[in-house]
Nucleic acid binder design. Structure first.
Lengths: 354, 354
DNA sequence: ACAAGTTACGGTAACGTACACGGAAAACCA
DNA sequence: TGGTTTTCCGTGTACGTTACCGTAACTTGT
């Protein structure tokens, strides 16, 4: 380590010296506050760009007496899918990194099967008057209403995991659902020959948002159409998560259509399907979504062949960080950040970072 | 934004108040400096742990008059493979983030085909007396000699991209070569039927480090052995990068062995092979390594089917960050960080982040 | 022309930490 | 006992910013 050279005054002080004003005045123009004549403002701005001045963020956060507060609203964990554990981890990681910066995060949760809880929690959240909001808009209509009032109050918000394009505020961070289905098509096209069939399986309750699954299905079908592969592609919906419902729905299909080569499950509920295929010893390839513990187990056993995953931890982490960048650094952030579409197999899952 | 509550004095000052000493004394015990009686040292330490005091890193960096310097030593870009562009970008990204923190990075480059330049540059680097070093140990013996003197001088270093386990200092960040070959085997096993053959192709000059390629080949062969698949697997070495050399080496193989179904290129030179396959209209699947511009072009054209990639940008970024964590935050860092093994196809490359 | 208001700016105490300097008390030596 | 060293600790300034407070100088209204 080396002593810093007695470098010619950097920062705001040097600007002040060159402009023959006090640092307070420089501070005013930097923060676009009033109380500076046009002439000196211009002079100072010129010096700032001449010097390519970059404010020292350390000093800035240190001196600022503000605490900025970010609120998050995502589904609560528990229930039949552990998917939202990962985004929660991402939020907590961002939290621990930002605490130093004087930023606190307040977390709110709703029940994915009950839109009322979404409304309640979003109201509660607003009462805390956060400076920025991270939100997973599982219920489209309710989310639109909520973000409308956010806009009125000029509170920036970011969507994660699924987008509502018309409502965009700061940014969207999450998967490109259509492309991820398209990729699945790409992958599956290597796995089937021309006379094998593909079974698309949507495992979802009726009241959940089906938009997700539909987009993925469209993507897959588009891939086969675009590449002139004429395999039969069937779709079934399974509306309950219990083993019996899954068994009856799938066995019907698999027994009637003996040349189904690949089953594609459009969400993270693929473990239930794997459970069925395993116990009935069906020899088909299985492709699904998301790096969940239960899915990984079946991947490891060879029942699931491929999982497609889109870094749920990072989605939330980046979401919070985008708010930070916007609120603290006032950097412009990309208004849409699409996550990579990762392919996970038995042989690389151990190295995957969510 | 909310005014920070007039929170009961946090930090060093509060500790000083409770211990009835000045902040300077607290500072002494925090930094384990001499000049504090055992009694007060104990008292202060107790208060510190009672309060679960976490030093404010912002203030610390701000007040510190030290500049800490990190040196990097990687192959120079240009030449026949643009692989090292990516790690350089990672270094530069870390640099821009850390500049704020009063950290400067000095970059050194060597010629991958000339070990003398490695020795020269490493000596030059040492003369700059950096506080930490990031190094790509392309030349094993020379790297060992270099890092030995690093150890003598107590300069921490991290390896990226390839490891020399016996010499570990701070950490290694890079791929698990064997597993990445194993994954290739996994992938390829889906692409061939039992009577098709696989051609492993090493495109490399003699004096380069072959260790990389061999490990990957071992991984692939191990996968097929472990899974009792008895496909014929051939290996050829191509020692020149020009189109003619590649053509003669490959055409020999492909014409003699008509049922080669997949060509696996063990490094980023896969574009050259793709070029050959394309111009001679060979209809085999092609799997290779690394997200390079030229590779992506062939991926997009459908000549390359899969690329395996291991986040070269992030490797270097994390490497620098590990040094930062160790030198500035004195956090303990994992001594080995293996990168994910990513699978890239035509349909997901656009979303890949190196 | 004078009070009142407005505009444009300077001074300065924080923020939490690092560190140089210096001084009092204790310990040692003669 | 007086002097010298050593041990232990406090004071003060600095790091680059923020933001409150104060105050000239200028404008406006009557």
């Amino acid at each position: 380590m080396k002593k810093k050279l007695p470098t010619e005054l950097s920062g705001i002080k040097e600007i002040a010296r060159r402009a023959n004003v006090s640092i307070a005045t420089v501070d005013r123009v930097i923060h676009k506050r009033t109380g500076v004549s046009l002439k000196t403002r211009d002079k100072i701005n010129k010096i700032i760009s001449d010097l390519d001045y970059q404010p020292n963020l350390l000093a800035r956060r240190l001196a600022s007496r503000k605490t900025i507060r970010i609120a998050t609203l995502i589904p609560k964990i528990g229930g039949e899918s552990s998917f939202w554990e990962a985004p929660l981890r991402g939020i907590e990681q961002a939290e621990s990194e930002l605490r130093q910066m004087g930023i606190i995060i307040e977390k709110f949760f709703f029940d994915q099967e009950d839109s009322e809880t979404f409304i309640k929690q979003s109201r509660l959240l607003l009462r805390h008057e956060p400076d920025g909001i991270l939100i997973a808009p599982s219920f489209v209509d309710e989310a639109i209403e909520f973000t409308t009032t956010c806009k009125e109050r000029h509170i920036p918000f970011v969507y994660i995991n699924s987008d509502i394009p018309e409502q965009k505020s700061l940014c969207y961070i999450g998967p490109d659902l259509y492309r991820s289905g398209y990729l699945a098509g790409n992958l599956i096209s290597y796995l089937v020959n021309d006379n094998q069939e593909i079974l698309i399986t949507n495992v979802t309750k009726e009241l959940e948002d089906r938009h997700h699954l539909v987009r993925k299905e469209e993507g897959l079908r588009a891939y086969f159409a675009d590449h002139k592969r004429n395999n039969v592609i069937r779709t079934i919906d399974v509306l309950q998560f219990d083993a019996d419902s899954i068994e009856s729905a799938l066995s019907l299909q698999l027994n009637e259509n003996k040349n189904i080569g690949v089953v594609f499950v459009t969400n993270s509920r693929v473990a239930s399907v794997a459970n069925y295929l395993k116990s009935f010893n069906h020899d088909v390839l299985l492709v699904g979504y998301d790096f969940l513990k239960e899915n990984i187990e079946y991947l490891n056993e060879g029942v699931i062949d491929f999982l497609i995953c889109q870094k749920p931890v990072e989605q939330a982490y980046r979401g919070v960080m985008s708010l930070y960048q916007h609120l603290v650094l006032s950097t412009t952030v990309e208004d849409i950040y699409l996550m990579p579409i990762d392919i996970i197999t038995k042989e690389n899952y151990a190295y995957y970072r969510n």
